[in-house]
Design a protein around this nucleic acid. Structure first.
Length: 492
RNA sequence: GACCCCAUCGUUUAACGGUUAGGACACUGGCCUUUCACGCCGGCAAUACGGGUUCGAUUCCCGUUGGGGUCACCA
């Protein structure tokens, strides 16, 4: 049987380095076996999925050098490769499960679910899932209620007792009590399937042989193998990769580390270096060499050699590796060309020039004013971030709220940025000037700088957000506790 | 909290059950050099703990501790 692996990102945000990590291992494993690598877009969350994100993900993966044999852009014999285009398939399968008595409509409201959950947590109950209220509604009654237009979801019937046992390629046998799993929703009220249903149906139909993904999914495997059982299908082989970590060992997150592939691109990392670095997270060349291409990786790779400790994504080492590529693989001519592709091209130069033009007295002033547009970080000092009559802690809060608000921006341009900053200033009842002041420091590394909003637009969201975070570190950073409190306040 | 996963220098990784526990990044001393970087030579630094199994455990088993993840009409 031909080995087929897949990457199944959901288009709900920035392209994540963790996605590239899983893509690399999935891709390499397919190629080790002369098989195929499939890209499938998991956009079953109508609320959060955006086309912009999908485009960005495909674009980043291409940039980093991952290729797929089948996918939404290139098609293939198992399409469509976008889950929102496969709804009728899921619907059929859901109906089949209901028919066979493996799934049932559930009419519980969100409010009831919330209160049940809350109560269970208060009671410190070991299981905090759904109480299965609708599991035993007679099918005829359920049909009537549906006909009457009552909103409902569909849940799968998890066994009430016994144990689920499955194999993970790297971890061996994993077992989990069925009683610890609640009746998972497989179809939402909007008629879309949930991940659990869609992933199983698609992996089967697309003849995926190896599921290579993050460790975070281990706990949902029982639901999936049960679905395979319900359908009478043979489950694929599971291989859960360790999770990439922040320096504090928690799961890699943009709160603590730049996670967007776009950041690394904008900051001037080479795609082959980034991919190489990801390849040494949990795996190593047999001879111990640290610089290797994807092709070389394919020649020596074995899934079984992956080590399981969660590797910390170490930007310092990535930087070193990137430097090695530049030094060892690029002639001056090649480097010049690469720089042109990166930022030294007419498009970017003209954008940058537009921002600084009015400030130039000589052409050579250009270099002085635009250095910040060609850098990863800028030098920030505490006094650059100071705001009159404000303590560092307050500035920190301000910057954090600004970052959060900027993160939510769908469109990144001078005017949307300006709107956000005005909102923040208003919220804190302060002059806009007092908010932009530390931002000039954080973004430009100087009080003398081109207009902030325009500069931020040109610089792009990834670099801006990273620079603001770096500035916050200069101020000592927010403690976990404060951050939590602030987040609560921010959400409210 | 319940459940699941994991455990070698600060980080990333080596070590058929027998090694002075190795490499790389970071840090650091020196050399090279007009400076910096690169490069070269050196240094610091780890088997979480407690029990077994064994002639012998980093390695196998159990427990403890620690870390992480999952417990959504998100994936």
């Amino acid at each position: 049987m031909k080995v087929r692996t897949r990457l199944a990102p959901s288009p709900t945000g920035d392209p994540h380095v963790g996605t590239a990590y899983q893509a690399l291992f999935g891709y390499v494993w397919a190629k080790v076996n002369g098989g195929e690598f499939v890209l499938r877009i998991e956009d079953t969350d109508q609320e959060r999925s955006t086309e912009a994100s999908e485009v960005a993900i495909l674009d980043s993966l291409k940039w980093v050098g991952i290729e797929w044999d089948e996918g939404p852009d290139v098609g293939g014999p198992f399409g469509p490769y976008r889950q929102s285009d496969r709804l009728h398939i899921y619907r059929e399968h859901i109906d089949l499960l209901i028919e066979k008595g493996h799934a049932y409509p559930c009419f519980c409201t969100k409010e009831r679910l919330d209160s049940v959950r809350k109560k269970l947590i208060e009671e410190k109950a070991p299981n905090r899932g759904y109480d299965r209220k609708c599991r035993d509604i007679p099918p005829s009654e359920a049909a009537e209620r549906i006909a009457a237009g009552e909103p409902y979801v569909v849940r799968m019937k998890i066994p009430l007792e016994g144990e689920c046992l499955f194999q993970d390629l790297l971890r061996g046998e994993i077992r989990k009590d069925w009683a610890s799993i609640d009746d998972q929703v497989i179809m939402k009220a909007d008629g879309f399937p949930t991940y659990h249903l869609a992933v199983v149906v698609d992996d089967h139909l697309m003849e995926i042989t190896h599921i290579i993904r993050g460790e975070e999914w281990i706990n949902s495997v029982p639901k999936h193998v049960l679905l395979y059982q319900f359908f009478g299908w043979k489950p694929p082989l599971y291989c859960h990769l360790p999770l990439l970590r922040n320096p504090d060992k928690s799961k890699l997150s943009k709160r603590k580390n730049p996670t967007s592939i776009n950041y690394y691109r904008k900051a001037g990392y080479l795609p082959e270096a980034l991919l190489n670095y990801l390849g040494m997270m949990g795996w190593h060349m047999p001879d111990g060499s640290e610089k290797f291409s994807v092709q070389e990786m394919i020649e020596s790779f074995d899934l079984n050699d992956i080590s399981l400790g969660g590797p910390v994504f170490d930007r310092a080492k990535l930087r070193w590796l990137n430097g090695r590529y530049i030094r060892e693989d690029y002639s001056v001519a090649e480097l010049s060309e690469t720089l042109q592709g990166w930022a030294l091209n007419p498009e970017y130069i003209s954008k940058v020039t537009e921002v600084v033009a009015s400030r130039l007295e000589t052409l050579s002033d250009w270099g002085y004013f635009t250095a910040m547009f060609f850098s990863d970080s800028v030098p920030v000092t505490e006094d650059l971030l100071a705001v009159k009559d404000m303590e560092n802690g307050e500035v920190l809060e301000l910057l954090q709220v600004t970052v959060w608000k900027l993160e939510k921006l769908h469109e990144w341009n001078s005017s949307t940025i300006s709107t956000v900053l005005k909102e923040v200033a208003e919220q804190y009842e302060m002059k806009l000037k007092n908010l932009t002041s530390p931002l000039y420091g954080a973004i430009c590394g100087s009080k003398i700088a081109p207009p902030l909003f325009d500069s931020m637009e040109v610089l792009g969201s990834d670099l801006c957000r990273t620079r603001i975070s770096a500035a916050m570190d200069v101020l000592g950073g927010l403690s976990g506790k404060k951050l939590k409190k602030l987040e609560k306040k921010f959400r409210a």
